[in-house]
């Protein structure tokens, strides 16, 4: 480049993949907490959350109360944005691109196109490339993660089984994604075409995973995390960070439990720290075994 060209001539760009994916990179090693009110958001921020997730009802209540579950009320989203200085995420229904447009116009920092809410479209997810604000989507396996990335998701989280306090599905999803990535990395190049077909994922993304050995976006974990040890285990299984939904505000002592999960996420490889922060937290959320939930009521099976 000659000196005459070495000046700032490029116009600024918003909403690029780098800006969207970069935002998620800054959340790594952190805990994102579900909140339904500004007061809960303040407690989460005070406990060291890197972001809060606004939604109408936490998954445990959605399970208990049933009915259609939707995007949070705009007044509530505004109130939460006003209450904290950390990033605010909010959930939109799968395929509900107008809820997503509303959340973008409210100024939320990330949209979770979430199976926890009632899907608005059983065929198509939101075309996330159309938005300036980035999206996080749930996945149970690598193929699903790559389909969401192909639609423009800038961050992936395991689905787990939200609102249960049972971490077994999240564990399964993290292990599944990790082992499928390893399998691709070890595969001869000429087998990647069939691998893409089997994963039902775009060949270009499959090839990229095979070459780099990792997802092109940040991978968090979610669904059923209720204790510091749960969070630490997910980090040891390769999660970049943790979403905690009902686990905090459905427990006996939300502020202390939230702070403990933050500490255990940072020192996820240090059992002494995890033991220390796990003491005296009071009751964890009341759990539901995933096995006892009838198939049609399993949230992780929403989305495809």
């Amino acid at each position: 480049m000659s000196s005459s060209e070495a000046t700032s001539t490029h116009a600024p760009v918003t909403g690029s993949s780098r800006v969207k994916r970069g935002m998620a990179e800054m959340l790594k090693g952190g805990v994102i907490m579900d909140v339904v009110t500004p007061d809960q958001a303040r407690i989460a921020e005070d406990a060291g959350a890197v972001a809060v997730m606004a939604l109408e009802r936490v998954p445990a209540d959605i399970r208990a109360q049933g009915g259609v579950s939707r995007m949070s009320d705009p007044d509530m989203v505004d109130g939460i944005i006003e209450a904290v200085s950390i990033p605010v995420m909010a959930k939109a229904r799968i395929g509900h691109f107008v809820e997503a447009q509303v959340l973008q116009s409210l100024g939320v920092d990330y949209i979770d196109e979430s199976e926890v809410l009632t899907p608005a479209d059983y065929t198509n997810h939101i075309d996330k490339w159309n938005f300036t604000v980035p999206f996080v989507c749930g996945a149970t396996n690598l193929g699903e993660a790559l389909r969401r990335i192909n639609e423009g998701a800038a961050m992936i989280r395991s689905k787990g089984e939200a609102g249960t306090g049972d971490v077994s599905n999240a564990t399964g999803h993290m292990r599944q994604i990790r082992s499928e990535i390893k399998r691709l990395s070890a595969m001869p190049e000429d087998e990647l075409y069939v691998a893409a077909k089997e994963l039902q994922a775009p060949y270009e993304l499959v090839k990229e995973i095979a070459q780099t050995g990792k997802l092109p976006v940040v991978l968090f974990t979610a669904g059923g995390i209720a204790t510091p040890a749960d969070a630490a285990m997910m980090m040891q299984l390769g999660a970049d960070g943790v979403f905690v939904g009902s686990g905090i505000f459905k427990s006996g002592n939300p502020a202390e439990r939230a702070a403990a999960i933050v500490k255990a996420t940072t020192f996820h490889d240090d059992p002494d720290v995890i033991a220390k922060v796990s003491r005296g937290l009071g009751e964890a959320m009341v759990g539901i075994n995933v096995d006892e939930i009838p198939q049609p009521h399993r949230l992780a099976e929403r989305g495809w």
Binding site: S8, T132, V133
Partner: peptide, 29 residues
């Protein structure tokens, strides 16, 4: 601003003279 205002751009940055292609040229932005 918030995330929707997050952006990428090119900047001139002082102190990177070591990276200039030659002593009489400016470093790339």
């Amino acid at each position: 601003g918030r995330q929707r205002e997050s952006f990428e751009t090119d900047l001139d940055f002082r102190g990177l003279e070591f990276s200039a292609p030659s002593p009489d040229q400016n470093p790339a932005p």
